[in-house]
């Protein structure tokens, strides 16, 4: 539901107010999911930032098709808050999730060492893709929070 458009029931319904922007927003998301960065890592970070920014809608919508194809394990998604110590998350996942959390909580707290470690795990192209994805998802999470309400808000 949205207070902006009376009969809107989804993000797409609201974005339809600006078709050109909606199309280019979707294109950006498509490029991110089609990139060389492991879609499972991307989906971990999308959902983790959704939790931190309290966007229940991102949790309620279907998981990324690219991530499912890449082998997303739903049992690990259920353990996402435990990523720092959970053995199911490897070094690359931990480096990505660490940056994702720092990005949305205190972006100025990101360090040279942190980025070097991340680059060692996913390469410079991965770093650029991940940081752009984090920007895109922060936009999306805040857009949802500002303009939509979830019937199940606050459950994640």
């Amino acid at each position: 539901m949205s207070w902006l458009v009376a009969d809107a029931h989804s993000r797409d319904d609201v974005l339809a107010l600006h078709p050109a922007l909606a199309a280019n927003h979707q294109r950006l998301l498509d490029e991110i999911w089609d990139s060389s960065l492991d879609a499972v890592l991307l989906e971990y970070c999308r959902l983790r930032t959704a939790t931190i920014l309290q966007n229940q809608i991102a949790w309620d919508e279907p998981r990324s098709a690219a991530a499912i194809t890449a082998g997303l394990d739903e049992s690990l998604i259920a353990e996402l808050t435990k990523w720092p110590t959970h053995p199911g998350f490897d070094a690359a996942a931990k480096a990505c999730l660490g940056l994702a959390e720092q990005y949305v909580i205190d972006v100025h707290g990101i360090t040279d060492e942190q980025v070097r470690e991340l680059e060692g795990q996913i390469g410079p192209d991965g770093v650029v893709t991940l940081t752009t994805a984090l920007a895109a998802w922060e936009i999306t999470h805040r857009f949802d929070n500002a303009l939509l309400s979830s019937a199940t808000e606050g459950e994640s």
Partner: peptide
């Protein structure tokens, strides 16, 4: 030059950014 590591993503971001400025 850094964003060029992921040029397709960068192009899509730039296109969306340009739309924000030139449309609406």
């Amino acid at each position: 030059t850094v964003m060029a590591h992921s040029s397709a993503v960068r192009l899509a971001f730039d296109t969306m950014y340009a739309t924000l400025w030139s449309n609406g």
